[in-house]
Simulated assay, not measured.
Amino acid sequence: MEDYLEKIYELMHEKGYARVSDIASSLDVQPSSVTKMLQKLDENHYVTYEKYRGILLTARGQRLGKLMKERHHMLEEFLRMLGVSEETIHKDVEGIEHHVSPHTLQCLQALVLFFDDHPESLNDLHAYTEQFEMGSPTDTEGKSV
C-alpha cells in the first residue's frame, strides 16, 4: 500500500495526475492489481478513485505519500553516505523501508542530518571503512580490534 501511495504522490507531482497505466508500469505490476489497490486505498480514505475518471489523493493520502517519498529519499541518502553503489541502493531501500520501525527510521534520519552537519565525521567513517575493507580495523591507538 505504501509503495502505491508513494508512486501516486510522485506521479501527481511530476505530471499533475496519476493513471492506472502509469502506476502499473512504474511498479511493474498488472493494471488489475493497481485497480484492486486503488479500491482499497479509496476504502481507507487515502485516495478518491472512480473507474475511468481518475485518482485524487485525499489530504490523508497526500500526507502519507509525502512521508513515504521523504523516507525513501532519506534511506537512499543514508546508503550513499555509507558508500553503497547506486545499483544496490534502489533494491536495498525497497527492502529496508517496509521492515524498519518508525523509531529506527528517526534514528537513521538523525544520523544523516548529523553527517550533513559534520562532514569531517563522515570522512572519518569513510577512512575507517577503507581500513575495514583492507583488513581488520584498528582502534585509536593503532591496535587491531
Rank of each mutant, 00 (worst) to 15 (best):
D92Y: 14
D117W: 13
Y52E: 13
L57F: 03
D117R: 15
G54N: 08
E76C: 01
S85I: 05
V84Q: 01
I89S: 03
E94W: 09
H73Y: 11
P119W: 00
L57C: 00
A110F: 08
V47L: 01
D116S: 10
M68G: 02
R60S: 07
V84K: 05
L57T: 06
R63Y: 09
H73W: 13
L56C: 10
E87Q: 12
L38N: 03
T35I: 15
D117I: 07
M81F: 06
K40M: 12
Q106T: 07
H72L: 03
K69Y: 14
R71I: 03
E120L: 13
G65V: 03
E120Q: 15
E97M: 04
E87T: 04
E120G: 14
L57I: 02
V112E: 10
K66L: 08
R60D: 08
V100Y: 06
G95D: 10
L41E: 05
L105Q: 11
Q62M: 07
E97V: 09
L56Y: 12
E77R: 07
Y52G: 08
T58E: 02
E120P: 13
E76N: 07
T88R: 15
K69N: 11
H99R: 14
S101P: 00
H45V: 11
G61V: 00
H90A: 10
H103D: 12
V112I: 05
H103S: 14
K91T: 14
M68Y: 09
H45I: 07
P119D: 06
V93E: 03
H99L: 06
E97F: 04
I55D: 04
H73I: 11
D42F: 06
R80S: 04
E70N: 09
K51D: 07
T104H: 02
K36Q: 14
M68L: 07
E70S: 08
F115P: 02
E50H: 15
Q39D: 11
D92P: 14
H118I: 01
Q109P: 00
K66R: 13
S101K: 08
V34N: 10
K36L: 14
K66I: 03
Q62H: 08
L41N: 03
R53Y: 13
L67N: 11
V93Y: 06
R60C: 01
S33Y: 06
T88E: 15
E97A: 04
M74R: 11
V47S: 00
S85V: 02
